[in-house]
Amino acid sequence: MGAQLRLTDLNLRFGGIKVLNDVGFEVEPGQIFGLVGPNGAGKTSLFNCISGHYRPSSGSITIDGEEVLGTAPATLARHGLARTFQHPALQLQATVLENVLLGAHTRLSGGPVEWALRLPRLARSERELRIEALTLLERNGLGWAAHRRADELSHGLHKGVELCRALLSRPKLLLLDEPAAGLPHSEVEQLIETVRRIRHDDDITVVVVEHHMGLIAALTDRVVVLDHGAKLMEGAAAEAQSDPRVIEAYIGKDAADDVA
């Protein structure tokens, strides 16, 4: 079951700079929710607040009704939150399969002593997980790369591996930070298919930060537009694209007047 996410009056400051200003919205379970806005609007900072990497100065973040503000990222991950990063951070020396297996860390039981003794139970769970990871890679068109080193693959494929890594943790809430950045057109279409399938098959709530308006329009149920750290509007992607305030934020007031 996908998680419900609610943000209320979220503020984030770095010294004197207000990065987020009273941002609030609600994501229903199973939704694909878009977070858009020009460069520097605070989208990634907002993501970092949700995933626990930044600590907001005030406000509230709840997942399934439970307050998670100030919770360490590692704890949040254990409670069903997974994310990808703008720049895929893979272990370049390790194989693709090892990279994906990392995502399942929280699903593997056993403490260090048990793993040092390599109890049969743990060896079995590791084997089962390998098969599951291979299947997941296969499903995302990366099965052929499983035993290759990550540094042999292209940037676009790294993004796919990172997504698989996040999925193997079986998240309830998945945060995708600019999944289409730097992808050629063909791969963006494939990404859209993949995210749709994830939502359909695995029933995950997805929040996606993206510049690529085509992707946002094709994928999201609802979007929030951020500008200068504040919420500009909320609605369907099509409404956002035609909203004069959004156009103004993206291309400037004068240009917006010219368009009108």
Binding site: A74, T75, A77, R83, H105
Partner: peptide
């Protein structure tokens, strides 16, 4: 296995480690 991968990601990227549920 589990601990080897966790040690390796703590070595290379603590932010990613944390988002995998691994407290650096």
């Amino acid at each position: 296995g589990k601990y080897g991968r966790a040690f390796a990601i703590v070595k290379s990227n603590e932010a990613v480690a944390a988002s995998m549920g691994i407290s650096p």
